[in-house]
Structure formats: C-alpha cells, structure tokens
C-alpha cells in the first residue's frame, strides 16, 4: 500500500496501510505519541482501499480490509477514513486476537486495580472511561479489556476514545485540555469525535492491573444497583467477549476466574454525574 503507519496499542502492534494519504495523515496526527510495534513487527495488518478504480476519484471512499475481513462491509466516505481505520483495527482484534480473552469493555485503573465496565453500545462505556480518566483514574481502554487467562490480569488497550453524539460535548467540557480528533458528522454510528488518551494512559499502556470490580452500566434509568449472581456474571462475560468461543479452554478459565473472584454489579443511571457517584461509592466500599 502506498501509505502506511505502524503503531502499538498496549501489547498489540498494528500496521495500517492505505491507498489514500488522508486516513494515514489523520492517524499519524492522533496516534503520534504511540510507540512502534515491538521489534517493528505488527500483530495485525489493516488495509484501507478504494472500492473500485473509479471510486478513487468519484465520491472517494474507503473499504476496510486486513488479515480478517467482513465480506459485505459497506465502504465509508473518505472523510471518515479515521473511523474506517479504527473499525478495521477493532475488527482485527475482535476476530483475530487469540492471546487474551477480549471483553467489550472500558477499563480504568487505580493503585494497580482495574474497574471494568461492560455493556451494550450506548451504555456509556467510553463516556464513563473518559470522565473517570479526567478524575484521576488511569484509562486502560474504552473498547476492549484484554484478560490474560494465565495470570487473570487485565492488559490495557488505550486506543483513541471513540465519543458519540451527546457524549462529545460532555467530554469536551470535562476534558478542556484534551486532544480531540476532527468531528466526524453523520457516520453510520452518528457523530463521532475521538479523544487521545492522556499522557499517563499512554506511558502506562504496558502495565496490567488486577481486576477488582465489574460493572454492567445501563444509561437512561433511575439510579439503581443490583448484585449479580456469579452465573449471571459468567454468562454476561461470555456475551461481552468477542473471542470467547475461539479461545476455547483459556477463555473458559479466564471468564470463570472473573466471575468467581471479582465483585460485580449492574448499575442504572440517568446521567453521568449519577454514574460517577455510584462508581466512586462502590469502589470505596471494596
């Protein structure tokens, strides 16, 4: 590919290649403080290419490809090349990651212990992760938490925080000195703006943490908390994992250990202030 950039997020190295320079330029700018893959060898390769020869010029758009592909993925407008790169990197992780149990979760750390928040899209994972990192927590990631089946520890994956719709303005207010990407309007996921994780998150991206609290947040409800049975936690974790089945026995071992050893709560919240208060109170009570 004519244009390329290589980088490491936590323990995972990527090489992103593109027919067009724009997505790579945007990636380079936002990922400028990220290290190169270990020994220069990426774990995953991502390709962004034009859907056909004419589409390089006419309504230019990008298709997502790489080591793992979804055959019927729709192209994105070139202006959303950054989103395409991000989606392609997520896809490689979701389909190809075999070393860690991948949980669709945001994670923050304090004193070596990790809080994991998992839930459906729109539950507030990214927003809560970004807001907690502005309040003294170390952001480990807003999309994937990597659980090592051997040690039970969580490894960070602090990619760019992907803020959507109403969360954009809220996080802009809470992190006035944050480094944000361009506002991407009208993407398939609505409006999106990326936030670069802070210097602390990047400096410590290789430091794992011991999982200490599992939260299953739900946005749009009156404040409420519920202790979850271990079996429910186990099932929810298998559902929140993109590679549980592919991982086989190590995935079972990792999910079982989390379900058995880590306190878990479902929390409902009507606004982020309520969520943050509940999180801090639950953490203080551990």
């Amino acid at each position: 590919m004519r244009h390329a950039h290589a980088l490491r997020i936590g323990p995972v190295g990527f090489r992103i290649g593109s027919d067009r320079p724009e997505p790579i330029r945007a990636l380079r700018a936002l990922y400028r403080d990220y290290p190169a893959p270990d020994d220069g060898v990426p774990d995953f390769t991502v390709r962004l290419f034009a859907p056909g020869p004419l589409r390089r010029f006419l309504r230019p758009s990008v298709m997502i490809g790489g080591d793992f592909m979804i055959p019927d993925a729709a192209p994105l407008p070139l202006a959303q090349g950054l989103l395409a790169a991000e989606m392609a990197m997520n896809l490689q992780m979701a389909l190809g990651q075999r070393r860690y149990l991948l949980l669709h979760a945001s994670a923050v750390e304090r004193e070596g212990r990790a809080l994991l928040m998992t839930g459906i899209s729109g539950a507030g994972k990214s927003t809560l992760g970004a807001l907690l990192s502005a309040r003294g927590w170390r952001l480990m990631g807003d999309e994937f938490a990597l659980v090592d089946p051997a040690s039970g520890r969580v490894h960070a994956f602090p990619r760019l925080v992907s803020l959507k719709n109403e969360a954009i303005a809220e996080v802009e207010r809470a992190v006035p000195d944050g480094r944000f990407g361009p506002l991407l309007k009208d993407t398939p996921k609505g409006d999106i703006r990326h936030l670069v994780p802070d210097a602390r998150a990047l400096a410590a991206m290789r430091e794992p943490a011991i999982p200490a609290l599992l939260l299953f947040p739900r946005f749009g409800f009156e404040p409420a908390q519920r202790v979850l049975a271990r079996s429910e936690v186990f099932v929810r974790l298998t559902q929140a994992s993109t590679n549980y089945v592919a991982l086989g026995e190590p995935g079972f071992v990792a999910a079982r250990r989390l379900a058995e050893e880590v306190p878990a709560r479902a929390i409902d919240y009507p606004d982020t202030a309520s969520a943050l208060a509940q999180v801090e109170a639950l953490w203080a009570a551990l």
């Binding site: 049975a229 271990r230 079996s231 186990f234 026995e249 079972f252 071992v253 079982r256 379900a259 058995e260």
Partner: peptide, 12 residues
C-alpha cells in the same frame, strides 16, 4: 472443566 458457580454450574 467444572465450575460450580451458584445454582448453576458452568461446564467446559
């Protein structure tokens, strides 16, 4: 692999 969790047992 048998993991008695509560009323349910997870089994791999």
């Amino acid at each position: 692999l048998v993991a008695p969790l509560d009323a349910f047992t997870a089994l791999y």
